[in-house]
Amino acid sequence: MNLIERIFDVTIVMVTIRMATPLIIAGIGGMFSERSGVINIALEGKMLFGAFSSVAISYYTGNPWLGAAGAILIGGLIGFLHAVVSIKFNANQVVSGVAINILAIGLTAFLLETFFHVSGTTPTVAKLPVWGGFSPIVYFVAVLVVFSHITLFYTPFGLRLIAAGEHPKALETAGVNVIKIRYLGVIISGCLAGLAGAQLSIGTMSLFVEGMTAGRGFIALAALIFGKWTPLGILGSCLLFGFTDALGMRLAGLGIGLPTQFIQMLPFVVTMIALVSFVGRARPPKAIGMSYQKE
């Protein structure tokens, strides 16, 4: 068998999908927030909260499905917190996002030690079942992409969301509550990012490791920009990043050259190159990052 065939087989497709799954969910989550006009640099932290809470809940109840549901709930709560600070109190959205990320690192580590009396890694817990080689969350992604595409472009809510991020004043004039739309956008982003975290911890593995998101939230954010704030674009760019991951792992598995550190670097380097070469053509929502106040 030649090298190309040894690299590109069914397994690499499956690994690509597996690696892309949390990115797609978090990326689409970020889309709901950014389309409404709130920068979402906090995806990383929200994912970490989701990863931890799903493991903790699965540990105490023995039911990973409850764990996944809990991750969505906790993610939504963190999203709510993010929304209150950024929307109600007009905090700088990047700064409030950074605060969430720091909080996630500190609080998950703190709770890990408080609940499990260990540091670093939780004991193994019940993980989600495997259906045809994938966690159920992977199938959910297919639904999510289609559903959010329709929601964003063909429903009143989606169009209002876009308007809130493009021209909030006009939306308010049309009698829609911009603040409420933005709250919803940020909370949805929290729910989805939480689920993305659950996919990492109880979808692919069966435990929580400190800082296990390892920058995936930020890659999801880059995929969101690279995908021009559309569900299909996010799907495409996340698959690209997932493939980068899978390729790196495959090359390492075949013992080809690259040390692991360079493989770890690969998605971040690809992200930077992708942003430089494509971002010029992508246009962010006009009112993104600006707080909105009723007059």
Binding site: V98, L103, I105
Partner: peptide, 22 residues
């Protein structure tokens, strides 16, 4: 009390500074 409490306090400080209006 885990040392990570210091990190948590740090994050909360950033929150409150960011939300100066609060």
């Amino acid at each position: 009390v885990p040392t990570d409490l210091a990190t948590v306090i740090q994050a909360v400080v950033v929150f409150f500074v960011a939300a100066e209006q609060l």
